[in-house]
Each structure stands twice: as C-alpha cells, then as structure tokens.
Amino acid sequence: MSEPIETQTTPSGKMIATMALVASICGVLIVGAFEGTQDAIAENKRIMLERAVFKVLPGAASVREYAATSTGIQPLAAGAALPEGGVKFYAAYDQAGVLKGVAAEAAGKGYADVVRVLYGYDAERQVIIGIGVVSMRETPGIGDKIITDQTFLKNFEALDVRVNAELSALANAVKVVKHGSKQNAWEIDAIAGATVTSKAVGRGINESAQKLMPLLVPHIAELKS
C-alpha cells in the first residue's frame, strides 16, 4: 500500500478489559454447561461400561472398578487416577452378589490403528470366556471379522491364561497361530485373510494378561464378597 493507513491504537486497558469481559462470559457458559451435563455424562459412561462388561461376562448384574498393583488390589473411585504401575480391571457380580468374573481392557496395534478389546476372565477356571471390541478402525469386510467371525470368537470361549507356579507370568503366553492350526488352549486361531488384526487382538490380550493376572490371582479371594 502506498499511503500509510491511519491507525488508531486502542489503549491497552480497553483491550484487556474487553478480553476479560468476553472471557468471563465464556467461563460462565462453560462452567454452566459442565455442571449441567456432568451427571448425564457420568451416567452414560457407566451404562456404556456396564453394557460392555455384561457382554463379555454373561449373567453379571453390577460392575465395580478396581486397580491391581504390586501391593494388592483396591477399589477405584469413579474418576480417580490409576496408581503408578497399576492395572485397571472391572469385577462383575451377579444379582446375588457373587463374583461372576473379571474384565479388563487389552490393546494391540492392528492394520490401521490400535485395536482395543475388553475381555472377560473366569477366575475359577483361569480362562478368558469372551471378548468385545471397544474401538478399532480396521478395514470393513476384512479386519472387522473379529467381531462377526464365529470360528474366531470360539477361541475366546475358554482361552487358557493360567499363571505359572511362581505367580510371575502366564504359564503359557497367549499366541496367535495360523488359521486352522490351533492345538493348545492358550492359542488363538487367526482369521484367514485377517491375520494382522487377529494378531493385534492376541498380542493385546497377552500383554494385558501377563501384567494383570500375576497381580490379580493372589488376591482374587478379596473380590469374592
């Protein structure tokens, strides 16, 4: 531009005052919205969690959150932070208040993104009795068979996750094997054509169970109440 534009500088005081005014209006709006929706959001989250847990542990009627650490297990208040080195899990009880099982989350790197699943664990038999997908972005029609493929889901009717004698790790690491070659109770038969996604699920479960089970098994009796 050839000629200088006439600029009228606004005094800083006015700028700050305006910004402060706008910021306080906005602050009030946000706090109001947060207060107003907080309960509904918490309720939604609880329902969603319960639905997911009930799916992998049929017969359960209520869910409690726990954290397992090297010093034992303790209940986790809603919204409380997980203690250092702890593993979060959910204990599910039936109508009579009897422990039905334990659910925990597992995550493994899939074809497109991390595949997160929730698995249900039967404390009596020390096996995984069901999985449900929490989130994934696998190719529709191929990777998402982990939700629909019945033969694949059969792997998780009694997947062996016993801990070893020293209670330091799983007796047998959960392993994904090629489609049609499952021989042991701790192996997962991969879906033909969706090996990467199957492996993500298997690896995730192995990682999670290796961490959780040694911490959980010695204290499982504390949950039975």
Partner: peptide, 20 residues
Amino acid sequence: VIIATFVTLVDYLIQAASLA
C-alpha cells in the same frame, strides 16, 4: 475464544446425549 466456548458446550452436550 467465543467459538471455542460454544464448541466446548457442544462437546459436553453430545457426550450427555450419546456416547456412541
């Protein structure tokens, strides 16, 4: 600032309406 405020509002409202 104004736009961000209303986006935060919508964010809460949608969470309250449907987590899915």
